[in-house]
């Protein structure tokens, strides 16, 4: 099961591309995804925060994710 992750702002700079495809972590949860992303890209761990969005909503660590979800990494926002 592959997941597609959209990257914005500084997370896109860190990863070096606007989207990333990766096999789903086990368990396939938001928390496990963040752990794996931080292990692959340690600079993500230096950010003030890094949230995960699932289908346009902020998602808690225990939320399950699948290939049909729209998943994105959300670094600290700075609108306004």
């Amino acid at each position: 099961m592959a997941l597609k992750i959209a990257l914005f702002g500084i997370t896109r700079d860190i990863v070096g591309q606007p989207t990333l495809e990766m096999p789903a972590p086990a368990p396939a949860t938001v928390g496990a995804l963040l752990d794996r992303m931080r292990a692959s890209y340690p600079a993500l761990g230096q950010l003030r925060s890094c949230a995960v969005a699932v289908n346009n909503e902020y998602a808690p660590a225990e939320q399950a994710i699948g290939p049909n979800d729209e998943i994105a990494l959300i670094p600290p926002v700075a609108g306004g």
Partner: peptide
């Protein structure tokens, strides 16, 4: 979910990152 990158004389930076 909007991000701001400031451009200075000598580079750029993502705000609040």
């Amino acid at each position: 979910t909007i991000w701001k990158r400031e451009e200075y004389e000598d580079g750029t930076e993502w705000v609040a990152a």
